[in-house]
Design a protein around this nucleic acid. Structure first.
Lengths: 150, 150
DNA sequence: CTTGATGCAAAGGATTTGCACAAAT
DNA sequence: ATTTGTGCAAATCCTTTGCATCAAG
């Protein structure tokens, strides 16, 4: 079974386990998000599924459901929500960076950073008032391209 | 001069420097945010200033302006925007944690964490495609109180 | 069959904008 | 005087909801 099929099977199971059906529309939505590199916003998802019998209402309802079921993560950057599937073998931490000049969003996926964050989370779980289960890190700055333009 | 006056003076200067006035309403808004512990949302600010001749429109306009001028930071947690003043001597990094059970928001201000984040930022500036000037870290998990209730 | 899922249109909440008036330099 | 700031009401954007119909298990 391909990775993709395995991942989608996992999502189906999570839904079924909680008594939800894996409808045609849900399948379309999951595939649309899956097909994307890293993060995708509602409009981008909608553009991918609107010709496949998925309404905006259904899209919103299911984004919320997939989040509740724990297979989808929402990240808010500059008041826009982006979505990412939580795949089986996927990195535990995602760091997103946003260029304040061109508004481009960059996904940062370096092992080193992941390690730093892991250590950070361990410290928090030991010393602080909360047991952390998920993180969202958004950095703002100026990307290399925009820096050259100044 | 008190810390508070110094901080407010700094904000006035930032505004003046960019050609904006330090109007009565702006002063009220700044004081309302200043008076608060850590983060405060629009409604909370509005409740503090509505009896002082500040309309919602003016509030929104000035939150945006203060952000642009670089003295106010917006943090989005669960689709609600919170605001914090960037004071002169204030910590460079803020970590916010949200309890997924009771929705309480906790401000985490431990030196150790700050150090980890500093290191993280240095690595990013060296290796990555962006020069980071500001960070937002939001953790989700279960707070100690809610954990005991389970 | 029976319950959950969908689409439409309408409602909702948060934020922004057009315009005329008021305040500051 | 001229520019910047304000308030109101209306507009806009994103998301949710009520209701009748449809489809999955």
């Amino acid at each position: 079974m391909s990775n993709k099929n395995k991942d989608i099977e996992y999502i189906r199971n999570q839904l079924t386990r909680e008594g939800y059906k894996f409808s045609y529309q849900r399948h379309q939505i999951v595939k649309a998000i899956y097909g994307n590199a890293v993060h995708i916003n509602v409009d981008e998802i909608y553009n991918k599924v609107k010709d496949k019998d998925v309404s905006r209402t259904t899209l919103y309802r299911n984004l919320r459901l997939l989040e509740e079921v724990g297979v989808l993560k929402k990240i808010n950057i500059s008041n826009i929500n982006y979505y990412e599937l939580e795949k089986a073998g996927s990195q535990k931490f995602h760091v997103h960076a946003k260029c304040v000049k061109c508004n481009k969003i960059i996904d940062i996926s370096e092992g080193e950073i992941s390690e730093s964050l892991n250590g950070l989370m361990e410290k928090l779980n030991k010393n602080q008032k909360i047991t952390v289960s998920s993180t969202s890190v958004v950095l703002s700055g100026i990307c290399k391209e925009c820096e050259l333009k100044i």
